[in-house]
């Protein structure tokens, strides 16, 4: 498989606060990479950096053969056909004064594309494809329900058949039953159009359901990156372990049987670059399992993401 998106050592500072601190990953053609983490870990900033809605402080973003991290908006425009984003909050990302038809026709207009059969037909087709009634062409965003608005957002992203869609928490504002509809839709569209997704979310279960590989972020860094089955079956980073064990499972029979790793404290807010491993203040392994020499290493040496083909982990003492 070829790399469609390749991100290397990406950094973003917001006035001295380092939100993204040296992130590297690739998304191969046709695959879905899940990017998970808790609030403040930098996952949404990363989504905005790779779509160049934000300018990186340093690092490279290579998309489909172009190094776009320093591209001007004019040079980016032709590439935007192939690189789209879906946001969490559908109501905030849709112009309230435009009808569904206008919103969905905009990508064609901006890119100067004349779809065969005309714009109107293409929009109606798009609406049908994402499960909206094409007769609602003239409705405004507020006349749709939350789930329908997210379908509208997805339809807009898909209008020009992009290669990569960055999904930033696309289902977290939706109720369970509606969330499942949208998750299914995303999966169906991927299969039909051969899309690649960078799927950014905090919900470990949804990410498991949709992703081929998963990257876990903590305080601006990727701490573990592995293929989905490996990561969920045998997480190696203590943070990944804790994160997975914290997700409630809808099966009371497992309540007693599951091994739980309770972390202390809240995820810290991003700040200045620190010395040593940034997870050690909450790390149960550091607290309970390591001797002083080992701890010393955690306190002084910043663990780098290993280059293991089966799964990369940024920990001095990962689980096997």
């Amino acid at each position: 498989m070829t790399d469609l998106l390749s991100v290397s050592d990406l950094r973003k500072d917001f006035g001295g606060v380092r939100a993204v601190d040296g992130v590297s990953f690739t998304v191969r053609a046709g695959e879905t990479l899940g990017l998970v983490g808790e609030s403040g870990c930098g996952k949404s900033t990363t989504a905005r950096l790779v779509t160049r809605l934000l300018e990186p402080t340093s690092g490279t973003v290579r998309f489909d053969g172009h190094e776009i991290s320093r591209y001007s908006e004019r040079r980016l425009r032709p590439l935007r056909r192939d690189l789209q984003i879906v946001f969490q909050d559908p109501i905030a990302s849709l112009n309230p004064r435009h009808t569904a038809g206008t919103i969905l026709a905009a990508p064609f207009k901006i890119q100067g594309v004349r779809p065969p059969g005309g714009q109107r037909a293409a929009v109606a087709d798009l609406m049908a494809r994402v499960g909206l009634n094409p007769e609602h062409y003239n409705r405004y965003p507020h006349e749709f329900s939350g789930g329908q608005r997210q379908r509208l957002g997805i339809a807009r992203a898909l209008a020009l058949r992009p290669k990569l869609v960055v999904c930033d928490e696309p289902v977290s504002a939706l109720d369970a039953s509606v969330q499942a509809q949208v998750v299914n839709l995303l999966a169906d569209l991927r299969d039909e159009y051969g899309l690649s997704y960078l799927f950014v979310a905090h919900d470990m279960a949804v990410v498991r359901h949709l992703s081929d590989r998963v990257a876990v972020m903590y305080l601006g860094r990727i701490v573990e990156l592995a293929d989905r089955d490996t990561l969920y079956a045998a997480p190696r980073h203590p943070y990944t372990k804790a994160l997975l064990s914290a997700v409630p499972v809808p099966d009371p029979a497992l309540r007693e049987r599951r091994e739980r790793v309770l972390l202390r404290g809240d995820p810290p807010a991003p700040g200045q670059a620190a010395v040593g491993c940034r997870f050690r203040s909450r790390c149960p392994r550091y607290r309970d399992d390591l001797d002083d020499t080992q701890r010393d290493r955690c306190a002084t040496e910043d663990p780098q993401l290993s280059d293991d083909p089966s799964g990369a982990v940024a920990c001095h003492f990962p689980s096997p």
Binding site: V183, A205, V249
Partner: peptide
């Protein structure tokens, strides 16, 4: 049944598709 069918699980692989409840409340 619908609610349970809508939920992806973190502890196991679900079959390919979720089984959501259709329509709106």
């Amino acid at each position: 049944w619908g609610l349970l069918g809508s939920m992806p699980r973190v502890d196991q692989d679900r079959r390919d598709r979720l089984a959501p409840i259709g329509g709106q409340p």
